[in-house]
Amino acid sequence: MHKKPLSKQIYDARWCYLFVLPCSILTGMFVIYPIGMSWYFSLLDWSGFTKEAKFIGLQNYYEAVNDEFFWDAFIRSFIFMFGTVPVKIVLGFIIAVFLNNQVLKLAPFFRTVIFMPVVTAIAIIGIVMTFVFSPFNGPANKFLMSTNLTSAPIDFLGNPDTVLPTVMGVYVWKWLGITMMYWLAALQTVPQDVYDAAKIDGAEGYRLWIHIILPIVLPFAIVIILVEAVGALNVFPLIETMTAGGPFFSSEVMEIYIFRTAFVTDSGTMPRLGYACAAGVFWGVAVLFITVLQGLWMRRTRRI
């Protein structure tokens, strides 16, 4: 059969292209263009708001990979991800299993309560949590002291040993509701017939969940893990409002590092947008790499 020329194919599908056009323009303006410009800026020695910008090739990249604070922040981002995603996945699943039970009459209420932090502004949560964890009259310390769990207040956000776990805990609490909703959506795809058939076959309790329900929702789990992992690498507003990366870089993740180098710091002097862009591009590629790996894992799981 004779294939239509490309121009004819495009003409025939002109309405489709027309409808795609607005989205393409917006994507180009707000996604493609900024990405392209950040690649270009990463090759410049440029503060970001002066006229003077010098092309320096890959020097910013060279400097970034030789900066111990860059790698500390890089690793800390992954510590944050590995510390929060499994907790959210497991907790979210357990809560979803309980709240998916039709017998539980208060399920909608609990769902709402757990979901409420998700719809609360993250900056507000960050600021409120600095008061919650304050060593002076903060409710967390008051509780610990009144129950004799500690004899002296703990400086949760000021101690380099406790700051990251504390922020991770707040992050899990803040976003647990959305993980729960993902799981609920996944569980609701399991037909009632499956539960009934399992019951007839005598599968109950953990066996029902491990051997029957879990294999059915496993493909969803991969997607949820992917979404959660990428989410846990984007935690700028929470950390900026709670600790701004301190004390002494203890909670500085990659986004805070990029922000710090892109703008004027407490110490003054000119910011380094070019360098920050190089760090950002490097970081973006790393996240993309992880996403691709997870995508491959998902495909493999589906084949199984």
């Binding site: 600095t130 964890f133 304050s134 060593p135 002076f136 002296a152 207040p153 400086d155 949760f156 956000l157 000021g158 101690n159 600790t243 301190g246 004390p247």
Partner: peptide, 8 residues
């Protein structure tokens, strides 16, 4: 030192 100076 007041406990918590690092978080204020």
């Amino acid at each position: 030192a007041f406990p918590g100076v690092m978080s204020m």
